[in-house]
């Protein structure tokens, strides 16, 4: 493992504006409907901007996750019973917020017989019933690579199937818990092979964990070999001193280089910038590809 270097002071681009009234309004709506967002649970840097503009990524089956990945701020702990009314509340929030695109993600639920796939299906169905014009993006766990779980989610018909690789092959075992590079790649491969033509398959990675250019390009090649459509690239921000040590604030020029390299390799859409997160401006991404 590479030598640890201490990286402290935050770069200028990590400055975000914050409108308390708008954020409070969103907090109240989400609390009223007893919904979790990955925005709040992971303490996302974009929360002020997204909540301020009425956008959020719902995190079902939370708030506790059965895995303890070293990059992630979502709490690891005893999982809650499945809330059968949660899908309807996600749909209700989507309707009230007037979202034209909704992102639904979840905690890992290795404790459940279906690993949480059924709750994704129920949520997609509830959204289709209540907000039929809203496009749906799911950001799923690896489902331990189980194809029956992936099949169930694909059959429910989201517009975008997203599963994050998170990082390059060599760093994966250091930051992800019970998840492997091969399994995540297999999930994406299976999803792409079995998705209908009009469904996009997407993934995302973090930079600043100590990855090299060659490793990032290898990852891009691995993804293009299985025809993944969208790629998001953003900066890792260490949630606390207990989490995986940040190695580098990656300079903007490298995001631009990676963007060009990814586009050259044939991804349909690439977002590469420090504050990019897998659901950040996902709506604009899908609209660009669909030519809206």
């Amino acid at each position: 493992m590479m030598e640890k270097t201490h990286v402290t002071s935050k770069p200028q681009w990590l400055k975000v504006t914050y409108d308390q009234k708008k954020v409070d309004h969103m907090d109240d709506l989400l609390a009223g409907l007893k919904l979790n967002t990955v925005c709040a649970e992971a303490n996302c840097p974009n929360l002020g901007e997204c909540f301020g503009s009425g956008s959020a990524a719902f995190m079902i089956l939370g708030p506790n996750c059965t895995r303890a990945c070293r990059f992630c701020d979502v709490p690891h702990g005893h999982p809650a019973p499945v809330d059968l009314l949660e899908p309807a509340r996600v749909a209700e929030a989507t309707k009230r917020l007037g979202l034209s695109h909704v992102v639904v993600t979840s905690t890992d639920r290795d404790d459940l017989p279906d690993l949480g796939a059924g709750q994704f299906v129920a949520t997609i169905k509830a959204l289709r019933r209540l907000t039929p014009k809203t496009t749906i993006e799911v950001l799923t766990p690896d489902f331990q690579g189980r194809t029956d779980c992936i099949d169930a989610v694909l059959a429910a018909g989201p517009d975008v199937f997203n599963h994050n690789m998170e990082t390059v092959r060599s760093i994966t075992p250091h930051v992800r818990n019970r998840a492997t590079y091969e399994t995540s790649l297999a999930v994406l491969r299976y999803a792409k092979e079995h998705a209908p033509q009009n469904m996009y398959v997407k993934t995302g990675i973090m930079l600043g964990l100590g990855e090299t250019d060659a490793e990032v390009y290898q990852l891009m090649d691995d993804l293009r070999a299985i025809d993944v459509d969208f790629l998001t690239i953003g900066q890792y921000v260490q949630p606390s001193p207990k989490h995986y040590q940040l190695r580098e604030w990656v300079p903007m020029a490298r995001y631009q280089t990676y963007y060009k390299e990814a586009v050259k390799r044939g991804f349909k859409f690439v977002a590469s910038s420090p504050l990019v997160r897998s659901s950040y401006k996902a709506k604009e991404e899908l609209e660009a590809v669909m030519g809206k």
């Binding site: 935050k10 400055k15 504006t17 914050y18 308390q20 303490n43 840097p45 921000v237 949630p239």
Partner: peptide, 9 residues
């Protein structure tokens, strides 16, 4: 804060 520098309006 932990992850960002917030500019308060």
């Amino acid at each position: 804060t932990d992850k960002v520098v917030s500019q308060v309006e």
